[in-house]
Simulated assay, not measured.
Amino acid sequence: MNFTKACLVAAFLWVSQGHAAEFKVFEHLNFDGGPKDFRQFGMERLTIVDPHILGPDIPNPAQIDEAKRQPRTNEHLVIDIESWPLEGEGQAVSIGKYQQTLTAFRKADPNIRLGLYSVLPVRDYWRANGHHGEAGVAAWRKTNSDIAAGLIPYVDDLYPSLYTFYGDKDAWIVYAEANLREARRISAGKPVYCFLWPQFFKTFAFLPGDYWYAELDTCRRMADGVVLWGTIRDAGPPHRSAEWDDKAEWWQATLRFLSEVRGTR
């Protein structure tokens, strides 16, 4: 069975089994003030390791050991390396680097659940929204199929990134649904957890409550869980964490969402 057929079979099985698994809510939130432990709200801390720990290239054993020493409260670990090109001539080299990195982590800890931030699929806004026509969508899907053929066997979970670039909520939903359908298509039945950030990508303004709730709800409909990431106060460097406000619209929408998720468990 080729890769595409295998993905289609896995997706059918996922749907036919009723998507009965518990919806997970992870966080990697850092604020100036406010809660230091979000488990009291029903969220799990997600450990993320990036080039600040791993370096700019394939990590060496010392860097892997340093990554292993990062605090973890569960078996999940996300590798965030965004400098290796996933489209164009460098794609094959990048896939090889990710394979070697994931293999090294797997060897260091066979019990870990590994994923790559915003790799499976490649995050896309305009092609996913249809602005480049059918040819653009086809090119994006081919890129994702090529990457998935090389990397899906090496990961346990998929972590698509669905950050907010513009103020059009309806357009965000179209973009998010397209990226999540693509994640499901290439997932081979593995769990999909959405990365969301409660701030706009460029201005760092926090999202209105209804916009943020729509993002959470979209992930609830189409994924196995969500990762809440942030925060940034202003354009650094160095980046500083935003000030905590427990009355902020985004946080009140989050509490509403968490109460609903807990009520369905």
Rank of each mutant, 00 (worst) to 15 (best):
G230S: 07
C7T: 09
S83W: 04
L13N: 09
N129F: 00
T231G: 07
F257A: 08
Q100H: 13
A205V: 04
A67F: 02
S118K: 14
G55F: 10
L116Q: 13
R106G: 02
K202T: 00
L13D: 09
D57H: 08
P238E: 01
A183D: 10
P71D: 10
G115E: 08
L228I: 13
D50V: 01
L46M: 15
P110K: 11
V9M: 11
W126I: 04
P35W: 06
F206Q: 01
L196H: 07
D234L: 07
L180T: 02
G150D: 07
L196Q: 05
Q100P: 03
E177V: 15
T143V: 11
D156G: 06
V15T: 12
N30R: 14
P191S: 13
V192P: 09
I112R: 12
L46S: 06
R185Y: 13
L102R: 09
P191A: 10
R184I: 08
K142I: 07
G133C: 08
V15R: 15
K97C: 07
I64F: 03
L216E: 09
T254H: 04
W126D: 13
I95N: 07
D57N: 12
A253E: 04
A92M: 08
R45S: 11
G34D: 06
D65P: 00
W251F: 12
W229I: 03
G133I: 10
Y117T: 02
A235L: 14
G34K: 06
R181Y: 15
L196N: 08
N179W: 10
A223T: 04
L13Q: 14
V226M: 03
R185Q: 12
D124G: 08
E75C: 05
H131W: 10
D37V: 10
P160F: 03
S16Y: 05
V119G: 12
F31R: 08
A205K: 05
E260S: 06
V137L: 15
W172I: 00
T231F: 01
F38L: 03
T73I: 08
L86W: 01
F41H: 12
W126S: 10
G150A: 05
E66D: 11
C194A: 14
K36C: 04
G209V: 04
E82I: 13
Q199S: 01
E249S: 05
S241T: 09
D146F: 06
Q70H: 06
D109F: 03
L216H: 05
K24I: 07
R127A: 10
T143W: 08
V137E: 14
G18D: 02
D168G: 00
R45W: 08
L120K: 08
A108I: 00
P208Y: 01
P61A: 04
K5F: 13
I232T: 13
D168E: 11
E182N: 09
G90F: 00
H239R: 15
L13M: 10
